[in-house]
Amino acid sequence: MDIAAQLILNAIIAGAIYSLLALGFNLLYSTARFFDLGYGAMSVAGAYVAYTFYNLLDLSVPIAVLAGVLAAGTLGFVVEKLVYRPLRARKATHTVLLIASLGVLIVIQAVISIIFSSQFKILSKDVNLEPVFNVFGGAITQTQVIILVAALLIMVALALTLKYTLFGKAVNAIADDEEVARVVGVNSERVIGVVFFVGSAIGGAAGIATAFDSGIYPTIGLPLLLNGVIAFIVGGVGNVYGAVLGAFALAITENAAAWFLPGEWKFAIAFLVLIIFLIFRPQGILPK
């Protein structure tokens, strides 16, 4: 097996998952205007619901994935209604929202640990039976191909929705200026509710993909969230294409670093990328 080819393939798959994380986060941020740390928990919740349906209830993959995605979306919607909306109504500062969302992240992760134990879980059942494809000397599993295709489909669907539907236009209007959007008749509260459903569902999809690809544990919410946030900042805050670009830049750097450093440093490398960008190019690769 060619190591270079393998690292490139790994970078592409990681990049696809980070893209989803960054896109969901970008959606939430551009409308609600704060760093929703609870987003990481929605990814984990989606992954664990899929795990329940697939591994525990023995249902088929599509049903499990659908259940996980819907669960993540619903959870995001409910948390927005119960926690963030009352805070926004009271004109709470960003710091207050940030700390509240931190609480959301901790509570949901801990509840998942209580239900499922903090053990590492993987969604694939028969890892050895899975077909493996050979691409330029690197190996890619069937699951990874499906993840890649699904991620691409979600990205395209999201881009089209934002560009051509009324909902997408409402989202863009709120992202530009919420007050003006409200003045011209956009029901911003309702749009933000839907955005939390969709954004969290995309986060859930990323969580499920991670669970299939490399496995999950309850506290993976924070790393997932931070990978999404780093991609989001590196790409350029509020820029949809930038988020994808940032995700791949992050994935490529992480996998290139895997040449020189053991895997334990991966997360530290991700932060090093973020820090370098914050210092030298805080507006990201593609500023909005």
Binding site: G103, V104, I108, Q109, A110
Partner: peptide, 16 residues
């Protein structure tokens, strides 16, 4: 884990 739930809830409820 219950401790974590407790800390998280304290943060949320305080903010609210």
């Amino acid at each position: 884990q219950m401790r974590q739930v407790l800390y998280g809830l304290i943060l949320i409820l305080l903010m609210l």
